[in-house]
């Protein structure tokens, strides 16, 4: 597996972590009613979106540059 492929795998896991952290924050907010966790959830879901956008951008760029087919 090349670094490019491993990087994409890593970004997928990072995205899953961001989504999981967001869900965890929502759960803690529901249990404790602390708005700071809601802010954490929003930040985590935003991070997940950024990671997805970055992952797609990275894949397309590597393909376009033909660094690795």
């Amino acid at each position: 597996m090349s670094l490019k492929a491993f990087h994409i795998v890593f970004i997928i896991f990072s995205t899953l972590l961001a989504l999981g952290t967001g869900a965890w924050c929502v759960w803690v907010d529901l249990v404790e009613g602390a708005p700071i966790y809601l802010a954490g959830a929003i930040a985590s879901f935003a991070a997940a979106i950024v990671l997805i956008v970055y992952g797609v951008w990275f894949y397309r760029k590597m393909k376009r540059l033909r660094i690795i087919t």
């Binding site: 670094l3 491993f6 990087h7 795998v9 890593f10 896991f13 972590l17 952290t21 965890w24």
Partner: peptide
């Protein structure tokens, strides 16, 4: 480096 970072992805949660 990616492997080391992937380990942290599991350690953190």
């Amino acid at each position: 480096w990616h492997f080391v970072d992937l380990i942290w992805i599991f350690v953190f949660p």
